[in-house]
Each structure stands twice: as structure tokens, then as C-alpha cells.
Amino acid sequence: MTQNLLELHGVHTHIGAYHILHGVDLVVPRGQLTMLLGRNGAGKTTTLRTIMGLWQASQGHITFNGQDITKKHTPQIAGLNIAYVPENMGIFADLTVKENMVLAARSAKTAAQIDQARLQWIFKLFPAVEKFWNHPAGKLSGGQKQMLAVSRAIVEPRDLLIIDEPSKGLAPAIINNMIDAFRQLKESDVTILLVEQNISFAKRLGDTVAVMDNGRVVHAGSMAALAEDEALQRSLLGLAL
């Protein structure tokens, strides 16, 4: 088993005429939570979408668990036990919360076939998921949709979770629930890659960090070390944590 579950080497991504990623080098250590930080427009979301095959890398390569996935299609990548929560959450608005969860639980065809112990754990983390179980997902508030999106990602055990701004739109109390959820997931040896703008969230959760600017990773290391170095924070992010 390799130490790093996910690795990107020299990854370039073009979207039409636009060259967005300019040789991204990124490692995501197995069993850790890696924060991907950077100013708006730095290339963070494009990096996640390229990992998932939604956009194809034009150069470089991506490996997951030692396997080259650079040219694989998104369903094949998801089939390797990777869950992705995009910034727009990707829920099915016309389906109920329950139906959204059943779709995400690939081994279940009905709600009764979902792992009930895991489902009860999710309900404790995000009570709104249980409260609105039979409601159309499109009727939920923004924060409730975010909780549903993360719940879908964790309804079955995954080897890697890739989540784009999970705290976006959430009230502080729900953010604390989210942090608790990710901590529990880390304890179960799940590897997590998070893009996040909430710096307090990043400090409390991150093991390792990569900072992007202008389509490249310009800093990588310990999250704790970055959190303690205000000069480095200002240099990389234009602000202090």
C-alpha cells in the first residue's frame, strides 16, 4: 500500500481556450484530511473536477491507490469508492431526501436496505436529514441541502471523500456538527480532501494543507504549521488565520 492514496503530478487542465491548471503537484496522504486552500479563482474546484474526470487533464497524471486514473471516466472513478460533493451539492431537487439517499447507497435499492446503524449515525450528525426524510430535496434550505449532500457522500463507507466547501451556507452550530462528522470519519481511516474558505474550519480539521495560486500548488505541508505562521498565511492567502 502506498503512503499517499491520491497523487497528482504535473497536471494541466484546459477548458476550451482557457489554460486553468498549470502543472499541479498534490499528494493526499492515506487516512488524513488534506485541506486545499487558495484565493478565489486559484484553481481549487478545477483540481477536484479534474480528479473526478469531469474535466480531462491535458497533461500530467493522477494516481489513486497506485492506479493511474488520468484517462478514466467519472463513473469509473466513482466506482473506485470515491465520493465527490461538488460546490453546487449535486442533489436531485425533485426527489425526496430519502430517494436521494437511496440513490447514493449503491448497495441498496430501498431505504430499508441502507445500513441502519450508519443511517442513525447520520441522523444524529444532521437531524434535518431525518426531519425532512420524505420532503422534496429542492424545498430544503441551502444549509439543509449541504447537509444532505454530505450525508449522501457518507451513506456508505468510502475510501476517499472529495468535498468542495462543505461549510458553505451553514450556521455555526451545523458547522460544528460537520467538523464532528469529519473527525469521526477520519477515525475510521477515511481519507478526505476538502476545499474550504472557512479558515477556522480548516484549522480545526486539517492534517495537511496545500495552497493553490494561479493554477499551481505553491505551498504544501502541515496544517498546524501554517496555522502558526502568520507571515506565511499573509504571503499565501493575503490574510491571517
Rank of each mutant, 00 (worst) to 15 (best):
M1E: 10
L6F: 09
L8P: 04
H12S: 03
G16C: 10
H19C: 11
H19T: 07
I20W: 10
V24G: 01
L26D: 06
V27F: 02
V27K: 06
L33Y: 00
T34M: 15
T34L: 12
T34I: 08
L36G: 05
L37A: 04
L37F: 02
R39H: 08
A42T: 03
A42G: 10
A42M: 12
T46A: 03
T46N: 00
T47L: 08
L48Q: 01
Q56N: 04
Q56W: 10
H61C: 12
H61S: 10
T70V: 14
T70I: 14
K72W: 10
K72F: 11
K72M: 15
T74N: 08
T74G: 11
P75H: 15
Q76T: 14
I77E: 00
G79P: 07
G79R: 05
L80C: 11
N81A: 15
Y84V: 08
E87I: 05
F92H: 11
D94V: 08
L95W: 04
L95P: 00
N100G: 02
M101K: 05
V102E: 00
L103R: 07
L103W: 03
R106W: 10
R106G: 04
I114N: 05
A117N: 13
W121T: 13
K124N: 14
P127Y: 14
V129G: 10
V129W: 00
E130N: 13
H135I: 08
G138E: 12
G138F: 12
S141E: 07
G143P: 04
M147P: 01
M147Q: 06
L148F: 06
A149P: 00
V150W: 02
R152A: 03
I154W: 04
I154K: 08
V155H: 05
E156M: 09
D159R: 13
I162F: 05
P166G: 08
S167W: 01
S167Y: 01
K168E: 14
K168H: 06
P172K: 11
A173G: 01
I174P: 03
M178R: 02
D180V: 04
A181D: 04
A181G: 07
R183L: 02
Q184I: 03
K186M: 09
S188A: 09
S188I: 09
T191A: 12
L194Y: 00
Q197I: 15
F201T: 09
G206Y: 02
D207A: 14
T208H: 11
T208F: 03
A210N: 12
D213S: 15
D213C: 07
G221V: 14
A227G: 03
A227C: 11
E228C: 15
D229P: 10
R234M: 13
R234Q: 09
S235A: 14
L236N: 08
L236K: 15
L237F: 00
A240E: 12
